[in-house]
Structures are given as C-alpha cells and as structure tokens.
Simulated assay, not measured.
Amino acid sequence: MVEIKTPEQIAKMRAAGLVVAAMHAACREAAVPGATTKDLDEVAAKVLADHGAKPNFLGYGGFPGNICTSVNDVVVHGIPNRETVLKSGDIISIDAGAIVDGWHGDAAITVFVGEGHAPELHELSRVTEESMWAGIAAMRKGNRLVDVSKAIEGYIRRQPRPASGRYGIIEDYGGHGIGSQMHMDPHLLNYVDRRRGRGPRLVPGMCLAIEPMVSLGTAKTHVLDDEWTVKTDDGSWACHWEHSVALTEQGPLVLTAPDGGKAKLAEYGVTAAPDPLA
C-alpha cells in the first residue's frame, strides 16, 4: 500500500526535512580530521533537540545512533562510535532523519574529510549525487516508479568509466516510500529490473526517499557481525546521496533541501513546487 499525503501532511514532512537539512549542515562542519563518528552523532542529537524534533533512526530495529556514519568502503548503516576517528582523505556518508508531529524526513550526504582525495572520489560523489537529482527530476505526475530507477541508472551508465573500470550500483539497498513511517512502500531500485515491472504510477501525494549508492567497484555488499554495517565485497569505496521528495500538483518538492530543490531541478528543466512553509 502506497500512502498518499494531503498538502497539510506534506507541510509537516517539509518541517521534518528542514530539520534534517540542519543536521547535515552541522555534521558537515563537524566532520574534520580527529573527530569521531560519535562526535557527529552528538552534533546531530543537539540539532534535533534544538528543533524539538525526534530521531527516527535511534532505536529503529535496535539501531543505537541518531545518524548513520559510513566511512570509505562502508556503504550504509555505519554505527557511530568513539573508535572510528576521521582522518584527512576519508569520505563519510552521513544519513540523518527526523520526526516532526509524527511525520518523517530522511536524507544522506557524502562529505570529504580534510584534503588529499583522489579525483576519482570527487567524480564518484558527483556522479552519485547527480544521479539522485536525475531521479528526482523524473518524479513527475503520470510517470511510473521505474522511470525514477531508469533515470538514476541511465545517468550513471552515461558517465565515463573511472580508473577502477566501473561504477557499481549497489543492488541490495535502495530508496523507499516515506511519510508516517520512515520506510514504506514502494521500494525503489536504483537500476531497472524488468522482472519487477513498471511499478505504481506516480501521483500527487506520493513521497519517496530517493537514494542512490554507488561504489568504485562491485555492486555486491555484505553486513558485518554488528548486523548493521554494510560494506562492499571488494573493499571499494562508496558514496551515498539521498533526499526525501514529495510529488505535488505543482511538481516535485525536495523536502530535505533548504531551497526545496529549486536550483538543481531548474538544471533539469523542472520547476520545483512552491514551499508550503515559505
């Protein structure tokens, strides 16, 4: 069952999305050499408290952090801890979520720690982020879910191959519906699997968390003994970008982007929906 939101409910999700954006801004600033991933978790917790919001990650299935902190070859679901100390040259995916008045926001960014990153890492992050925006631009009334998957995969496949030889589009994890819960139907693949059909038609009131995860090698992953941390099978580094998006009668609204997605969607010839909280 796909949950269809009213404009009033989307406005509450926008409020949650802006808290997530504030979490990311604070964590990006705190992601410096010498900081631990637990330090970032505490920064995120303070932002949540300052906004009177609740974390949607903490306690979810037993997860022990307010955010997920995934470093280098960790794709997703890295657990914040005191032992993981960031160093110059690392990359870290910061996946954050918030609940406001019972409605959820969820987004992820990839941050470059310090200096000394290989050009192919910058390109990996660019390709992953831009594929997300291509998917968001495909979230239009009348399209189907597969059109979002097709836009994400198509963007990645059109890019020049990295020195490693390929971009791996992570297979076992993808986007999802979001609203009164963090994870809801439908599941969104970041590639086209024709066995799954075209998926539901996109209609106003649908909200999706669109989140490509891409590596510099394999698409295959495994979960560590902590039952959360997901790593690439070949140790290749990975990037993760995510936004929560609502489809409205006026077009897509990127709930977790400070400007509602206006600037980036314009690059794709798409007009973002008006911000209900503006």
Results as ranks from 00 to 15, higher is better:
Ala118Ser: 15
Ala219Pro: 14
Gly89Glu: 09
Arg126Phe: 15
His104Tyr: 10
Ser215Lys: 12
Glu29Pro: 02
Gly175Lys: 00
Ala21Gln: 11
Val192Tyr: 06
Tyr167Leu: 02
Pro160Gln: 11
Ile4Lys: 11
Ala278Ser: 13
Glu171Met: 03
Ile109His: 04
Trp241Arg: 08
Asp147Ala: 08
Glu249Thr: 12
Glu242Cys: 08
Gly116Tyr: 13
Asp106Trp: 02
Arg126Lys: 15
Val76Ser: 08
Phe57Met: 11
Val71Trp: 03
Ile91Lys: 08
Glu115Asp: 15
His176Val: 09
Asp50Cys: 14
Ala246Trp: 14
Gly179Arg: 04
Glu267Thr: 02
Gly34Leu: 10
Gly175Thr: 08
Lys54Pro: 04
Asp95Cys: 10
Pro274Gly: 00
Ala273Cys: 07
Arg82Val: 05
Gly217Asp: 08
Gly135Ala: 15
Val111Asp: 07
Gly165Met: 11
Ala31Asn: 12
Arg194His: 08
Ala98Arg: 05
Ala49Leu: 15
Val254His: 06
Glu129His: 15
Gly205Phe: 06
Leu253Ile: 05
Leu188Trp: 06
Ile136Gln: 10
Lys264Val: 14
His24Ala: 04
Leu86Ser: 08
Val270Trp: 01
His240Trp: 08
Leu145Gln: 07
Asp233Ser: 12
Gly135Lys: 13
Lys54Met: 13
Gly179Cys: 03
Gly102Ser: 09
Ala272Ile: 09
Asp226Lys: 15
Arg144Thr: 09
Ala263Cys: 02
Leu40Phe: 02
Ala273Leu: 09
Asp185Tyr: 01
Leu202Arg: 08
His24Ser: 06
Thr110Asp: 07
Val127Phe: 12
Val203Tyr: 09
Lys150Thr: 07
